[in-house]
Design a protein around this nucleic acid. Structure first.
Ligand SMILES: [Zn+2]
Ligand SMILES: [Zn+2]
Ligand SMILES: [Zn+2]
Ligand SMILES: [Zn+2]
Lengths: 148, 148
DNA sequence: TATTAACATGTTACATTATAACATAACATC
DNA sequence: GATGTTATGTTATAATGTAACATGTTAATA
């Protein structure tokens, strides 16, 4: 357990400054979606967001949600968990980083850990193959400390 | 370039022995799907398989394909590339292993590299968090040697 | 101040990916 | 030949994601 309000406040503050830095607008819609995502440390699907958002505002359609998610992801404010087709707030949007996601199958908590891709065993493989990496998907599925 | 017929033959041989070891049946349907997947080193979607298979045999429905894919995956004969929602033959179905997939955005070639999860930086993170890993999704998206 | 360009959001209609639930077949064992 | 098990077929629908075009909003710029 932790004071999650701190997480939310921090995330929203970060978002403001990141968007400012990137010269991008953090509109009310984008803020609302980001806040919904930060409701928990569990990943949420686009259609969960769609439902939640449609309660708060008038009915929204899928493109609205997907576009907003795209914006947030491009600006490093959220990540997509590919193995779950779901989205989660980025814990470190200010830093340029790769991430390792630890995904608990029982409680759904997702822990994002920084990983400076560059000298890991994965990068050894990348280099050995003369591969030019552009993005990484690194997800570990299992049970978190509390759940096993 | 390489003699891909060798890859196919090897894969089908391996499949036979793996299924025997696992006491599982490699039925004609399952063989057909595996062969279709091994048509190339590029990942194929379930619905591509559905289309191909429906040409070879009588029309098949999605559950037939998804069930077969599930069987093949459970027996370690194929892998799902999560970031592409597509499937690819496993190059090393006989060994118990983790994999790193190098996915070329231009030519779609997917290189599977073995990675004995256990002492990598990812596992350091796993251990630090007292996380009990069950499966890994490790995908690097970029450009292969030939394409950059 | 009208005009334009840009960006953001709304709307409609679909495409793609995946699964639930139930029915039948195929085969082995008793 | 009844029974259980595994594999496959069938129908229907759920869940995820996008293309294309319309409208609104704001801020230069003519
Ligand atoms: Zn929190
Ligand atoms: Zn947990
Ligand atoms: Zn080959
Ligand atoms: Zn390539």
């Amino acid at each position: 357990m932790h004071d999650h309000q701190v997480c939310i406040n921090h995330a929203m503050q970060m978002a403001k400054s990141v968007c400012k830095r990137n010269k991008q607008e953090l509109t009310p819609l984008r803020q609302a979606v980001l806040k919904l995502i930060w409701n928990s440390h569990q990943p949420v699907t686009a259609y969960q967001i769609l439902a939640d958002l449609s309660k708060k505002r008038k009915m929204v359609a899928p493109p609205t949600v997907y576009r907003t998610l795209e914006f947030l992801e491009k600006n490093g404010l959220i990540h997509k968990i590919e193995s779950l087709k779901a989205f989660i707030g980025c814990s470190h949007p200010d830093q340029n980083h790769g991430s390792v996601f630890l995904i608990c199958r029982k409680c759904n908590y997702v822990q994002e850990e920084l990983d400076m891709h560059g000298q890991s065993n994965i990068d050894k493989i990348v280099n050995k193959n003369i591969f030019l990496p552009q993005s990484y998907v690194i997800e570990v599925i299992g049970f978190c400390k509390s759940c096993h």
